Amino acid sequence: MEHKGLKGIVAAETRISHIDGENGHLIYRGYDAKEIAGNYTFEEVAYLLWYGHMPNKEELLWLKEELRKNRVLSEEMKTIITLLPSSMDLMSVLRTAISAESGYGEYHFPPTISQAIKLTAIIPTIIAFRKRTLEGVADVSPRSDLSHVENYLYMLTGEVPQFAHAQALETYLILTLEHGMNASTFSARVTASTESDIVSAVTSAIGTMKGPLHGGAPSGVIELLDEISLANNAEKVIREKLDRGEKLMGFGHRVYKTHDPRAIALKAKLKELGGQDDWLDLAMNVENIAITLLEEFKSGRSLYTNVEFYAAAIMKALNLNPELFTPTFTASRIIGWTAHVLEQADGNTIYRPESNYIGEIH
């Protein structure tokens, strides 16, 4: 069947982002993502994706205040989260809690940026509240004097994060805010195209992100870094893996045929922070050795680090458990999802693709 999985089919026109996989470029509203990741904050880039332009001073202050005042969970929402089975994975908790949010606000079609801000603000709080509840420790109330990313880390641990950790995570989150018509974004746009509300669209996206083929945790990269750290010999570990024909996790990308621009931007940020965290320094050293060996073993394949490699290093440096990776990814991608929902609603046409029947006719 041609175009299986809709691969190669243009499903929408968008002004939000552009991916040039051949040349390794990711564009947000006309800006090179790897350039803005090192020069703007999470809040500024979120504003760009929602509104189509960078905020001025007053606009940025407004957005920060809107995010701050929407961070607090209602007691009803806390009760819902607490009553969910302890065995329920965190992505399912997020999906359920966000779905329940539709009962606590005026969510109707067409969607608004204010609704997008509210959903963006509460996702980190939901993650942190659930994590600490399962650990049997008191939840940490959000702080209005911290940025969006700093506050997320603070609510997870109860401690104001180190500068290097907050900077590394913020850069990663900026670089994963948006990435074209991926599976979860498509799910959100399809739901919005029925004139359903933004909560339903985001719930659809979270359910899609939950799948291991889309938002899976970089456990393979973490295992690689752990093994190298234990052996204290990156070249030996990597060479042995390549000798056995094993895939080197965190290298290569199905879209980018050259350097992943997000990995380049993350590496640049980690170089700025060099010497402030052993795991981040280890990751940069491993990358240099691995790329040299990959060229030796698989010459001409152009296998470079992808964003997952440095995401794993950052998660390891932050001491975040693997089950927090996809929810943290979700706390970022909510910006792209809602930007697409808003765009879909503007000049909406319902999605109604056709299927090719291959069964029998009796």
Rank of each mutant, 00 (worst) to 15 (best):
residue 47 Y to P: 00
residue 44 E to D: 02
residue 68 R to P: 00
residue 153 L to W: 06
residue 2 E to A: 11
residue 224 L to I: 08
residue 108 H to N: 15
residue 54 M to D: 14
residue 356 N to G: 01
residue 136 G to W: 07
residue 103 G to P: 02
residue 227 E to G: 06
residue 255 V to C: 09
residue 345 A to V: 00
residue 13 E to C: 03
residue 182 N to Y: 06
residue 118 K to G: 00
residue 360 E to W: 03
residue 101 E to F: 04
residue 195 E to F: 03
residue 73 L to H: 09
residue 136 G to D: 08
residue 240 E to S: 14
residue 154 Y to N: 11
residue 11 A to E: 07
residue 28 Y to D: 00
residue 344 Q to V: 02
residue 269 K to V: 14
residue 6 L to Q: 11
residue 87 S to F: 03
residue 171 T to E: 02
residue 311 A to N: 13
residue 37 A to N: 03
residue 335 I to K: 06
residue 360 E to H: 13
residue 291 I to N: 04
residue 170 E to C: 04
residue 7 K to N: 02
residue 24 G to K: 10
residue 18 H to Y: 12
residue 37 A to M: 04
residue 205 A to F: 09
residue 96 T to A: 11
residue 66 E to F: 03
residue 214 H to D: 04
residue 260 D to Y: 06
residue 307 V to A: 12
residue 154 Y to H: 11
residue 280 L to H: 12
residue 332 S to W: 00
residue 275 G to C: 08
residue 258 T to D: 14
residue 125 T to G: 07
residue 228 I to Q: 13
residue 168 A to L: 01
residue 73 L to Y: 08
residue 179 H to R: 05
residue 101 E to T: 13
residue 72 V to G: 05
residue 38 G to S: 07
residue 311 A to P: 03
residue 15 R to H: 03
residue 352 R to P: 01
residue 332 S to G: 09
residue 231 A to Y: 11
residue 113 I to F: 08
residue 305 T to N: 05
residue 121 A to C: 09
residue 192 A to N: 08
residue 208 T to W: 09
residue 344 Q to R: 05
residue 119 L to T: 04
residue 59 E to L: 06
residue 225 L to T: 06
residue 165 H to T: 01
residue 296 E to Q: 15
residue 354 E to R: 15
residue 211 G to I: 02
residue 126 I to C: 05
residue 182 N to F: 09
residue 110 P to S: 05
residue 309 F to Y: 10
